Amino acid sequence: CHSECLGNCSQPDDPTKCVACRNFYLDGRCVETCPPPYYHFQDWRCVNFSFCQDLHHKCKNSRRQGCHQYVIHNNKCIPECPSGYTMNSSNLLCTPCLGPCPKVCHLLEGEKTIDSVTSAQELRGCTVINGSLIINIRGGNNLAAELEANLGLIEEISGYLKIRRSYALVSLSFFRKLRLIRGETLEIGNYSFYALDNQNLRQLWDWSKHNLTITQGKLFFHYNPKLCLSEIHKMEEVSGTKGRQERNDIALKTNGDQASCENELLKFSYIRTSFDKILLRWEPYWPPDFRDLLGFMLFYKEAPYQNVTEFDGQDACGSNSWTVVDIDPPLRSNDPKSQNHPGWLMRGLKPWTQYAIFVKTLVTFSDERRTYGAKSDIIYVQTDATNPSVPLDPISVSNSSSQIILKWKPPSDPNGNITHYLVFWERQAEDSELFELDYCLKGLKLPSRTWSPPFESEDSQKHNQSEYEDSAGECCSCPKTDSQILKELEESSFRKTFEDYLHNVVFVPRKT
Rank of each mutant, 00 (worst) to 15 (best):
K103T: 13
K103Q: 11
K103A: 13
H106K: 11
E109Q: 12
E109H: 11
E109G: 12
G110D: 06
T113L: 12
S116Y: 02
S116P: 01
V117Y: 02
T118V: 02
A120M: 09
A120I: 12
E122C: 05
L123W: 08
G125W: 05
C126R: 00
I129N: 00
N130G: 14
N130K: 10
G131T: 02
L133T: 01
L133Q: 00
N136W: 07
R138T: 02
G139V: 13
G139E: 04
G140T: 05
G140S: 12
G140L: 13
N141W: 08
L143V: 10
A144L: 10
L147K: 00
L147Y: 04
N150Y: 05
G152H: 08
L153A: 12
L153S: 11
E155Q: 13
I157D: 00
I157Y: 00
S158H: 01
L161Q: 00
K162P: 00
K162E: 04
R164C: 08
R165F: 13
S166G: 08
S166A: 09
S166C: 13
Y167K: 15
A168P: 15
L169E: 02
V170P: 04
S171V: 03
L172P: 02
F175I: 13
F175L: 11
R176N: 06
K177L: 06
L178P: 00
R179N: 13
G183P: 02
G183A: 04
T185S: 13
L186D: 10
E187L: 07
I188H: 13
I188Q: 08
N190G: 13
Y191D: 02
F193I: 11
F193W: 05
A195Q: 02
A195C: 14
A195L: 10
N198P: 00
N198M: 03
N200F: 08
L201V: 11
L201I: 05
L201H: 00
R202F: 05
Q203V: 07
W205K: 05
W207I: 04
K209W: 05
N211M: 08
L212D: 00
T213G: 08
T215L: 02
G217F: 00
G217E: 00
K218V: 12
F221K: 00
F221S: 07
Y223Q: 05
Y223V: 11
K226R: 09
L227N: 00
L227G: 00
C228G: 03
L229A: 15
E231Q: 15
H233N: 03
H233S: 13
H233A: 05
M235W: 06
E236G: 04
V238N: 12
S239A: 11
S239L: 12
G240R: 14
T241L: 09
K242C: 12
Q245V: 05
Q245A: 15
Q245Y: 06
I250V: 15
A251F: 07
L252Y: 10
K253N: 08
N255E: 03
G256T: 10
G256Q: 02
G256F: 08
D257F: 05
Q258C: 08
S260F: 09
C261M: 01
L265G: 09
L266H: 01
F268R: 00
S269V: 02
T273A: 15
I278H: 00
W282L: 06
Y285K: 02
W286S: 09
P288Y: 03
P288I: 09
P288S: 05
F290Y: 09
D292H: 10
M297N: 15
F299C: 02
Y300M: 15
E302I: 07
P304N: 01
P304E: 15
Q306P: 03
E310W: 14
G313S: 04
A316L: 04
N320Y: 09
N320R: 04
W322N: 02
T323H: 15
V324R: 06
I327Y: 05
L331K: 07
L331N: 10
L331F: 12
R332N: 10
R332Y: 04
N334W: 08
D335I: 13
S338A: 13
Q339C: 10
Q339P: 12
N340T: 12
M346C: 06
M346S: 04
R347D: 07
R347K: 13
G348T: 13
L349P: 01
K350R: 15
K350Y: 07
K350H: 11
P351G: 14
P351L: 02
W352V: 05
Y355Q: 00
Y355F: 12
I357F: 03
F358G: 09
V359P: 03
K360V: 11
T361P: 02
L362V: 04
L362A: 15
V363R: 07
T364A: 14
D367R: 05
E368V: 15
E368F: 13
R369V: 09
R369M: 11
R370T: 04
T371K: 08
T371M: 12
Y372Q: 02
G373C: 10
G373A: 12
A374Q: 05
A374H: 04
A374L: 06
D377R: 08
D377H: 06
I379M: 02
T383V: 02
T383H: 00
D384F: 02
A385P: 08
V390H: 03
P391N: 01
D393H: 08
P394K: 05
P394G: 03
I395S: 11
I395P: 01
V397A: 12
V397M: 12
S398T: 15
S398G: 15
N399L: 10
S400P: 04
S402C: 14
Q403C: 02
L406P: 01
K407H: 08
K409Q: 14
P410T: 15
